[in-house]
Computed example of a mutant assay.
Amino acid sequence: MEALRARVVSTLDSMSQPELKEFKFYLRNSGEEPRITMQDLDRAPTTSALADLLVKRYVVSGTPRVLVRVFQRMRRNDLVAEWETASRMNLKRPYENDGPGLERYNMEKPRKAFVMCVKTGRPGAEQDRNIIRNWLEECKFECTSCIDPDEKELMEKLTEFRDGIIGIKDDVSCCLVTLMAHGGKGFIKTVLDERVNLSDIFEMFNNENCPALQEKPKIFVIQACRGGRRDGGVVQADDEPMEVDDSQKKRLPTFSDYYIIYPTQEDHVALRHPKDGSVMIQAIDEVFRQHGKKLHIADFFTQVNNRVVHTDFYMNKNPIKVVLVMESTLTRAVYF
């Protein structure tokens, strides 16, 4: 990423002040999502700050493409040619530039997904379910559905899903569980308004209870409120001795290789449009359409978060902001 940033700075420094003004105008009106606004540009007065804004907003894979579009509108064919070449080179990821390559999980074997969705009393939920199903199918997951379950049915189906993975053991690469429902702090609600603790669900798939998933990614996408607080946004203006186990037998932490995505911060509401569906899941669809399967899952959901954070939402005419929360104990990169 630093190599790309330096290249962007060099390009911007070569431009005159009138050209930079024109560049910012076309950048703001490029049509690329997530949008760069006038306020964003006001907070990036130098070429260095502008380069930071571009690379953070569009990441390594998207920045060359955005620059090509802007330079085409500026009729700077020399820079169009330069950045088209950069785009084709598919510049390396940040950890590939800055040190040893991050090892990847082996994803060649079957991928298993569980999709639970409470549709009753949740307008837009059907749209969410369709988007998630399409995303998972494009990523070659074999999906198990669970629609409008009560607590007994949900836990039985999750247990059956988990036990099925244990049964095939070496023939599974990854497990992904999506839970879409009403919820609160640490729990989701069934169609009968029963509470199910998320920790109980996570525990079902840990290294002790599901040994078939040891050292394999276990991904959880949660679309549910985590409380009742609303974030209106802001105007920008250990010392204990540690013992080391030298046993020759390999040991794993109980909860390693997890990746959990929440649609909002703790104690806060999650947003869902009655027609278009949930904010996070809409953003998942948009990022997947733009980047496909090129991004490591952490980068993928960082881009999803970028879109969500830089979009303004309203409830009862009051502004509300949303930010995703990602928790990870992954030890390798996950590419679908």
Rank of each mutant, 00 (worst) to 15 (best):
V80D: 02
G277H: 05
N316P: 11
T63Y: 08
I320F: 01
R104W: 02
E156T: 15
L176H: 12
D276Q: 14
K92L: 11
V234G: 07
D231Y: 05
N106E: 05
V177S: 10
V323T: 13
K275Q: 15
V59I: 15
N207S: 15
T37G: 07
R272H: 05
E153M: 09
D148Y: 05
R226V: 00
Y258T: 06
G121F: 10
I166A: 07
K169P: 07
F202E: 09
F23T: 06
P64L: 08
R289D: 07
P18A: 02
G292Y: 00
G121S: 14
S61E: 09
G164P: 00
K249I: 14
R251I: 11
L154F: 01
Y105T: 08
Q282A: 10
S61I: 06
P64V: 09
G183H: 03
S61A: 14
P211N: 08
I168C: 05
I188V: 04
E160K: 04
M326Y: 10
G124H: 05
D267S: 11
S145D: 14
R230P: 02
V322Y: 04
I131W: 02
I201Y: 03
P123N: 11
D257R: 02
E203Y: 13
V244H: 01
C210S: 08
I132K: 12
E240G: 12
E208D: 09
I297E: 03
